[in-house]
Amino acid sequence: MSDIEDPKTIECPPNTLTRRDLIKRVIVGGVAVSSASYLFRASTLLRQSAPGTGERLLTINVNGQQRRADVMKQETLAWTLRHKLGLTGTKLGCDRAECGSCTVLIDGVPHYSCSVLTHTVRDRKVLTIEGLASSDGTLHPVQQGVIDEQGFQCAFCMPGFIMAAVAFLKTNPNPTRSELAQGLSGNLCRCQDYDKILTAMMRGAENMRGASRV
């Protein structure tokens, strides 16, 4: 296996780990990996704590709220969001930074939350699909773009695509289809609805430009 790091995960927030280190830590903390690629401690029910799996109470800022959760050392952000904070909009499609379904924004930058340890985001702002619409229910312009164009099919990949698009369009508000495709290329859609997704995201970009003019 090559030692070259995946560029997407190298751009981790400071103090976080490379993908390689992360996998190593998750494995060491997780006792066994041979038959299971998903290894997470789901509850505090287990009385006897294996070494390195102890939980610690953390406060993290998710969707503008301070949320507290008991978090294991080796716990990934995706697991904390889904199983500790009830934010199941963030999906796990591969759990190894291949598919992008778990993409969330950390300080405005898209990350695969399956490959970010929760304790590394304590002082950072996490935004998930659930936090994108306004509190009055108004959809984000990119979400509205999906509604306008009937983007996506099964939509399991949709939260990840939308989060990636929101971040990309903030810095590239007026992309061509090719540029936007590059920006979304870290996300996989197995319904292969790429053409309609791209159309929906282009509409989202248009909606965003319209909204910023108001």
Binding site: V31, S34, S35, L46
Partner: peptide, 12 residues
Amino acid sequence: AVDEFTAAEAIE
């Protein structure tokens, strides 16, 4: 088992 770690360890 109560969680996946325990279930995976049991498999081992």
